[in-house]
Write a protein that binds this DNA or RNA. Structure first.
Length: 872
RNA sequence: GCGGGUGUGGCGGAACUGGUAGACGCGCCAGACUCAAAAUCUGGUGUCCUUUGGACGUGUCGGUUCGAGUCCGACCACCCGCACCA
């Protein structure tokens, strides 16, 4: 009986409706089964989903469906990272209210995601721009404030002149705003900060325990936190030009061992000492201004020369009364790291060496590689930063740099400068506190009021939420909240006199730093229901893009620590397993008129040469590089189009096949068609099975074809499960292809001839296994196949079948037989054959006998169940 | 500059702790079916040699080993992250 083609357009909505009606994917918090929380990074509602979303959510859905089939109570929620700039840009360009724009986008994208057939618990959905959500975020802010984790300070900020807002250090990339791409300027503003640096050490140390995170991400965070162990040393100021009140120059160094190689001191242009000296020295003042300007004018840093200006100030060397060193203002010293001052040791630091050579300062080698001659070893052009032996360093000579470090630390700890200990060990971090103030409308309002009399007054909990006003206008640049008197002007909660609301809103990274916790109890009257949060967290498997390796993941790790202090949850690490998926990339096409979208391109191949032709005009196009799908190169494929023509399952299946999930996947028309063909082929196979295998009773033992079919099926079942556990979806799919290949022959033979009940039973079992292992990837298709076979219950509700351990091991093995390391023959032998039996059998092989030509082998290596090597 | 990663057929990629390199897919070639095409099915497909058979082959060079894509050393290319962090 011929079967109709599988029609996803008909099948997919039908099964989606059934799943929804049965509320299969809604998760209860009081379910006794073991929990599993799988989460994909929630999307920004930009307008429509793109292929990156399809890949991300397809992966998460495979895990969710698999874990559910394995008997877990799976939490798999979805929401919207809905505050942010694009909504305001849309408002300014198209006169749409950010709220309307955002919620309309959410509606569109929700429909799109639903068409993918994802097993999501939509009952827990929320958007971060819902008042119900940011209300609780405001409460968290107040909690943090109570716990000393929030403070306000005037600071130099990164100002994005295009977006008219402040950026966190993390949001400045190569001196440009991460979103606008505009060169960032420095401004002095009073900002709110989260004390993420309170947790520097914890955030660093705990990385060790995140063994289900990619090594790469852990390393990136480690470098970002940037711990360094050094010594804080006071250098006594001795010159008569010393500014009043300053007795010592405080310096931080990780290389106190090189202290006898010091030849100058360098301080930042903003260093108090520099400012002080500049007050009476116009030339120096001009130099400092120059430094600051260059510092702000972005990546010219790379080429910027090391320049300095002698302040005339002199300091005394800690170990030599008579040794005085000049203090320079230098453009390469940063005020916000360490103490803003360094001592320069030219022989041990390339930057210091360049500086010393430029200004004619002494260069004394103090660390020498082992084996060099100390009388002739010199540093001229290249600094030596490696390990070795101390030289020219008085009492340190002969020791290692590490020993010298300790010796200097101990000796200086006993000395004093101006009544204070001269040196102490100090740990420094590169990590800065997180500035969260943004001069934007479309964000979570910061719940404080500024009162002339009382200062900064936090709102009381019962005064929350501070809702965003709806009646705003975007006619002028800047923050509309600043121009909204009825919202802005309030009475001081403390004294009642006229006051103003804080008009800055929070960085949107705050919104995404705790949403995973809110999902565990989205209707709780507090930010979390601690019992629910502790039951569900940490997220077992988090999946998203590598672009969030630092910002979002570090902030979230901070948040769970801070929320723990506030009693909102009791986990330190929010994400137990992290997976960073690769991008979806596509070929680019270019014609005379610019980039051409794939949908308008026809590809041809002649004599191995590929050509791209414009569908309408027939113009020959240049095939360009394979790049991330983006609007600018127009190499985007719309998921809606793919789902409409091939169905969601095909899109999901193709996304998961071929490329390892952590690498980029190249989207090709041919690849999608291949996936679609495979589904159709499998559909025909299931159709044949439905015709021939319907009334077969199970048979206990089997042999021949039946046995090999059973073994193939159970091996696949075992392997696919293991591959999914390791998120190796591409390998799981290869196994599925193999199984289909292996059962299609025997199935046809059954259909063509007399029924062989053993084989039929084996095939029936194999086909059911096939459906089960495909279900996580192609869930609608699996339901349809199951129904075709007469299955009464839903695959989405079914348990993962258990494989039969006896069937995954063969009783015989085929061993390659090598002679001197080269394969010359094969030997099929009982799996448990002992060494002697194998050797005997190998020596009997014709290939081995002719190679030996009567002689005895020197050695025979038998690796059980693996290989035999005969050494002659 | 520092840190990390990757390198395997025409292409995407398999190969667990060293043990038959190229699973699976795409593409391509041939055949079957068809008036024809599409669809489908079957077979083939690393390179080279005249073959039965053999030689070579996992970026390059060298090493360890009975045996190396896998381990060690040196180098090359590309990609990513950080970047004046003292």
């Amino acid at each position: 009986m011929a079967i109709e083609r599988y029609n996803p357009r008909d099948a997919e909505p039908r099964w989606q409706k059934i799943w929804q009606e049965q509320r299969l994917f809604e998760t209860a918090n009081d379910d006794p089964r073991p929990k599993y929380y799988v989460l994909e990074m929630f999307p920004y509602p930009s307008g429509r989903i793109h292929m990156g979303h399809v890949r991300n959510y397809a992966m998460g859905d495979v895990v969710a469906r698999y874990k559910r089939a394995r008997g877990h109570n799976v939490l798999h929620p979805m929401g919207w990272d809905a505050f942010g700039m694009p909504a305001e840009n849309a408002a300014m360009q198209n006169k749409v209210h950010p709220k309307e724009w955002t919620y309309a986008n959410i509606d569109t994208m929700r429909t799109q995601l639903k068409s993918m057939g994802l097993s999501l618990d939509w009952s827990r959905e929320f958007a971060t721009c819902d008042v119900e959500y940011y209300h609780h975020q405001q409460q968290l802010f107040l909690d943090f404030l109570d716990n000393g984790l929030v403070y306000r300070k005037q600071s130099k900020v990164n100002w994005d002149p295009v977006d008219q807002t402040v950026l966190a250090n993390e949001q400045v990339i190569d001196g440009r705003g991460w979103r606008s791409g505009a060169p960032v300027e420095q401004r002095e503003l009073t900002q709110w900060f989260f004390r993420i640096t309170d947790f520097s050490e914890d955030l660093l140390e705990s990385l060790e325990d995140l063994d289900q995170w990619p090594e790469k991400v852990r390393l990136m965070q480690k470098n970002w936190i940037g711990r360094s162990d050094g010594l804080h040393i006071s250098w006594e100021i001795v010159s008569e030009t010393a500014p009043a009140g300053e007795a010592a120059l405080e310096v931080y160094t990780t290389r106190p061992d090189t202290i006898f190689g010091a030849s100058f001191m360098a301080i930042a242009a903003d260093h108090p000492l520099a400012l002080n000296a500049a007050a009476s020295n116009p030339e120096l003042a001009e130099f400092c201004r120059e430094c600051r300007r260059a510092g702000t004018s972005l990546a010219a840093l790379e080429t910027a020369d090391k320049v300095g200006f002698d302040t005339g100030i002199r300091v005394r060397h800690p170990f030599d009364e008579n040794w005085k060193l000049p203090v320079y203002v230098a453009n390469f010293v940063l005020m916000d790291y360490g103490t803003g001052a360094i001592f320069g040791c030219p022989s041990g630091d390339q930057r210091d060496l360049d500086f010393a050579n430029k200004y004619g300062l002494p260069v004394v080698a103090v660390v020498m590689p082992k084996g060099e001659d100390p009388t002739s070893f010199q540093i001229t052009e290249d600094a030596y930063v490696g390990d070795g032996v101390m030289i020219n360093s008085r009492f340190l000579d002969g020791s290692t740099p590490q020993q010298a470090f300790d010796t200097v630390a101990e000796k200086l700890a006993d000395k004093t400068v101006a009544g204070k200990q001269q040196a102490f060990r100090q740990v420094n971090y590169r990590l800065r506190d997180w500035g969260i103030s943004r001069q934007r409308y479309w964000g979570c309002p910061i719940p404080v009021v500024h009162c002339d009399a009382c200062g900064v007054v936090p709102l009381r909990r019962e005064e929350l939420p501070v809702s965003l006003p709806d009646d705003i206008d975007f006619d002028k640049p800047g923050n509309p909240l600043d121009r909204h008197p009825t919202w802005r002007d309030v009475a001081c909660p403390k004294c009642g006199s006229p006051a103003k609301r804080e008009t800055d809103t929070m960085d949107t990274f705050v919104d995404s730093s705790w949403y995973f916790a809110r999902f565990t109890a989205p209707d709780a009257s507090e930010p979390t229901d601690p019992a629910a949060a502790d039951a569900w967290l940490p997220v077992d498997q988090y999946i998203g893009g590598i672009e969030h390796a630092i910002l979002h993941l570090l902030y979230s790790r901070f948040f769970s620590r801070a929320m723990k202090i506030g009693g909102h949850l009791d986990v330190k690490e929010p994400f137990k397993g992290l997976f960073t998926q690769g991008m979806v990339v596509h070929e680019t096409y270019r014609g005379k008129g610019g980039w051409v979208a794939p949908a308008e391109v026809k590809l041809e191949e002649q004599d191995g040469v590929r050509r791209a032709v414009h569908l309408d005009s027939g113009e020959e196009l240049t095939i360009g590089a394979i790049e991330k799908m983006s609007k600018s190169t127009r190499n985007v494929v719309d998921p809606d189009d793919i789902i409409a023509s091939f169905g969601a399952d095909t899109a999901r299946f193709f996304m998961l096949s071929d490329s390892p999930p952590d690498r980029d996947v190249i989207w090709t028309e041919a690849g999608v068609e291949g996936a679609y063909r495979f589904l159709q082929r499998t559909w025909r196979l299931i159709g044949d099975a439905a015709d021939t295998l319907q009334y077969v009773a199970p048979v206990a033992s089997s042999a021949g074809d039946a046995a090999s079919v059973s073994r193939a099926a159970h091996r696949t079942l075992k392997a696919v499960g293991e591959d999914i556990e390791r998120l190796a979806f591409n390998k799981a799919i290869a196994r599925i292809y193999e199984l289909v290949n292996e059962i299609s022959g025997p199935l046809r033979s059954v259909a063509d001839s007399e029924a062989n009940t053993e084989l039929c039973a084996a095939l029936r079992d194999a086909v059911e296994i096939l459906i089960a292992v495909m279900a996580p990837m192609t869930p609608h298709f699996a339901e349809e196949c199951n129904a075709l076979l007469g299955g009464k219950s839903l695959v989405a509700k079914s348990d993962w079948p258990e494989y039969d351990p006896a069937l995954v091991i063969d009783s015989t093995v085929t061993l390659p037989v090598q002679i001197n390391g080269k394969k010359r023959a094969e030997l099929t032998i009982a799996r448990d054959a002992d060494q002697q039996t194998v050797e005997y059998a190998v020596l009997g092989l014709p290939a081995v006998q002719s190679a030996l030509s009567g002689k005895a082998p020197r050695k025979i290596i038998v690796v059980p169940q693996r290989i035999v090597n005969v050494v002659i």
